[in-house]
């Protein structure tokens, strides 16, 4: 019984959070100045046509009616229709989310793995040249504008050395003029590598420093000293004593970064012409495509709430001291 009550409570809390966030997002878009019709503006368009468009977007209704419809739609998981694409938001998202997952989620995973591995190494070898070198390099890439960094990588590795494609997720000529499934998979992977390297290089540092800090803290714990005194091999002490405990906060950050990764990244998607959701969200916000922007935020909020629940569950699994009975 008790075991069930906790998750149930979390789910209810999550739903309430979702409701509040979605309400704020609704209001935010309405309060923000800007006309959704700005994307269709044309001097030859008569006021009557503008009125027709406004009506078909549902913008001629009073705000509370719009809000009511919005809530009703959310309840039935209907995210509405994008103004710009005149297509259900769910369809637009469904087309973009897998692309985003492929790039940004793999990058999150990769930078977490890299960050945890490097973080534990430099924490273990504190004050070594390796620590200074990795921290400096990590911070350098972390602080570098990703647009610029991506451009340099594209110029060097794609344009000059011809190792990778310049941009996009697929080779359009190859795809449209006929390729086998195998070739297509290789092609996507081929396109994936450069943006993946860019993102990972730019973001592993956060994880690395977090891991390092957390590990340095854990290394002060008695059980780590004790394990050393027990004469356990260095690697065992590092990995199953110090790192194992230091990973807990890092895993929280990792799961949150996973949930955030679904939002993609505007600049990366722009420079690599990656058809992900970040650029779409940006365009939707700029063009006041309320349904599309709201849909993006809905997914992002949902993922964050899920991530927090997942973190709780993972914690109970990783740290036996935590239990939710």
């Amino acid at each position: 019984m008790g075991r069930l009550r906790y998750p149930l409570r979390r789910i209810i809390e999550g739903l309430i959070t979702l409701f509040i966030v979605m309400t704020i997002i609704f209001l935010l878009f309405r309060v923000m100045p800007g006309d959704p019709l700005s994307i269709v503006i044309d001097p030859k368009m008569t006021p009557e046509v503008k009125e027709m468009i406004r009506h078909s977007y549902g913008l001629d209704q009073p705000m509370f009616v719009q809000y009511g419809i919005y809530l009703k739609n959310l309840f039935t998981l209907n995210l509405g229709e994008s103004f710009r694409y005149s297509q259900p938001v769910s369809e637009v998202l469904a087309a973009r989310i897998p692309n985003t997952l492929l790039l940004f989620t793999s990058a999150s995973v990769l930078s977490a793995v890299l960050g945890i591995i490097l973080g534990r190494i430099i924490a273990w070898r504190r004050n070594s040249k390796l620590e200074y070198g990795l921290t400096l390099a990590g911070l350098f890439f972390y602080e570098m504008p990703i647009f610029w960094f991506g451009l340099i990588l594209i110029y060097l590795f794609a344009f000059r050395l011809n190792l990778f494609p310049i941009s996009g997720m697929i080779d359009f000529e190859l795809w449209t003029l006929g390729a086998t499934t195998g070739e297509k998979i290789i092609d996507i992977l081929h396109h994936l590598i450069l943006p993946l390297i860019t993102l990972t290089t730019a973001s592993f540092c956060g994880m690395m420093l977090l891991m390092r800090t957390s590990m340095v803290e854990t290394m002060k714990e008695d059980y780590v000293e004790a394990a050393k005194a027990r004469g356990l091999p260095d690697k065992v002490v590092r990995d199953s004593y110090a790192a194992r405990n230091a990973e807990l906060p890092v895993i929280t950050a990792f799961i949150l970064s996973l949930s955030a990764s679904i939002g993609g990244g505007v600049l990366t998607e722009k420079i690599f012409s990656w058809p992900g959701i970040g650029y779409e969200l940006y365009q939707a916000t700029i063009g006041r495509d309320y349904p599309l922007a709201q849909g993006c935020f809905f997914i992002l909020t949902l993922m964050t709430i899920l991530a927090v629940i997942v973190i709780d569950i993972t914690y109970a699994y990783l740290d036996p001291r935590v239990s939710y009975d």
Partner: peptide, 20 residues
């Protein structure tokens, strides 16, 4: 006609130079 989306002019320029 094949039209490909390049969201950044810096990149479409490189694509042009590379013959893409």
């Amino acid at each position: 006609i094949l039209r490909k989306v390049y969201r950044s002019p810096d990149i479409s320029k490189l694509a042009m130079r590379r013959g893409e």
